[in-house]
Design a protein around this nucleic acid. Structure first.
Lengths: 228, 228
DNA sequence: ACCTGAACACCGTTCAAGT
DNA sequence: ACCTGAACACCGTTCAAGT
């Protein structure tokens, strides 16, 4: 909980902490704070303490706490790798999905900021292009291409939310808890639930992700070959 | 669910605030508060004020604010209609998905509590049975049935998150904002983004929901006919 | 232009005291 | 068994004042 070292925290700000204040430096430190302690541990005051600065100084660079959280989300989203040049429909959707997931899982505790906030800005426009372009090239009319894009995106958001929420501490799912859950499910008296209980009690995120992604991409690629 | 204890009296509730304190009454009022002002407007103190009670009285019925939010989520989830008896794979998944969506959209501001929290409890076990059962009957081995279930669930969570987050005020998407967005997209210089811009700038949630759901259910139903 | 500190109007929760 | 109020250790943000 409290820092182990009992340093005098209220004296002079440590000037070693990386230079002058700036929006960029604030966001970087904020992301680090989220990584370490989670989103709800973020406060303007705590962040300022980490930066060795008065809480109010942050407001010279960021409008509000809400804008701070949006800013963190944008930082994370901007870490999406630049798309590789040309590929077919299957490859490009597959790559986009995998990179999106990998990028979020690098910061599992911050990921919900991207997954649950309506980002007004237009970050990640080139990854968008990288998916839309092969859809159009494959024969999708623009309206259906957008539907296809949004379907995959919804699936990604849903699976990732499950991944990062179930294990916010990043510990593998507690085998103790999963054993108890298995027992509960088997006591439910519902036949289908009971026979699927061993699989309901655990969740291999990797496998889960692949299963649904495969279905979506296969179907969308197949649909491209059919008249719309 | 649990049989309510004998009430001291029937008839008119005392005072203006509607009777004695209870977990049930607290959760009902909390859901109303979320409906009116949103999740982040919820505080123990404000909730107590609405109930005409000291803030600390709430703690006789609820462990913490976090437990309160979990409780609201469970109330909402328990509003899922009981599944209709027997149906084929397509119908039962379709019905489950539609009812889940409808239930969430009745409380759009509270829905994120269900969509983003890891609910430990086993609410909604019978809807689960109602989906798993036809999957098994259609020939899915239990492990794949669970994959199929989770894929649809991920999609539902993702689409619904988009629906309730984009319009938390429940106003239809601002046409002004969407016109500006269109302009931005068309100025992006990215060819696919530009030609899909009119469709990216708006989002018909109904249509969007149907598109992805159709793909998933069709594919899962078709897969049932194939050897695993 | 940027930073500061006091101040305001809030929080969740502990605790001791009441009935 | 339930309710209360004071108290503690926090919040986000406004404002006036400093450099």
């Amino acid at each position: 909980m409290t820092p182990t070292a009992a340093k005098p925290r209220r004296g002079r700000p440590p000037k070693d902490s990386g230079g002058v204040l700036s929006r960029e430096r604030i966001l970087r430190e904020a992301l680090a704070l989220v990584d370490e302690e989670g989103i709800e541990a973020v406060s303007m005051r705590k962040l300022a303490r980490r930066l060795g600065v008065d809480p109010m100084s942050l407001y010279n660079h960021i409008d509000s706490k809400d804008a701070l959280l949006d800013g963190i989300a944008e930082v994370l989203l901007s870490r999406l790798p630049a798309p590789s040049p040309a590929a077919d429909l299957r490859d490009s959707m597959d790559t986009m999905a995998r990179e999106f997931r990998a990028t979020m899982l690098e910061h599992p505790r911050a990921a919900p900021l991207v997954l649950t906030r309506k980002l007004a800005s237009l970050t990640a426009l080139t990854p968008l292009e990288a998916v839309l372009s092969p859809l159009l090239a494959a024969g999708y009319p623009p309206d259906l291409a957008v539907h296809a894009l949004r379907t995959v995106l919804a699936y990604l958001i849903g699976t990732l939310m499950r991944e990062v929420n179930v294990a916010p501490t990043f510990s593998v799912a507690n085998p103790e808890a999963s054993r108890r859950r298995l027992a509960d499910l088997e006591a439910s008296g519902l036949p289908a639930v009971m026979s699927a209980a061993p699989y309901l009690a655990v969740c291999d995120h990797e496998q889960e992700f692949e299963f649904g992604l495969r279905i979506l991409i296969d179907t969308l690629a197949t649909m491209a070959a059919q008249p719309h």
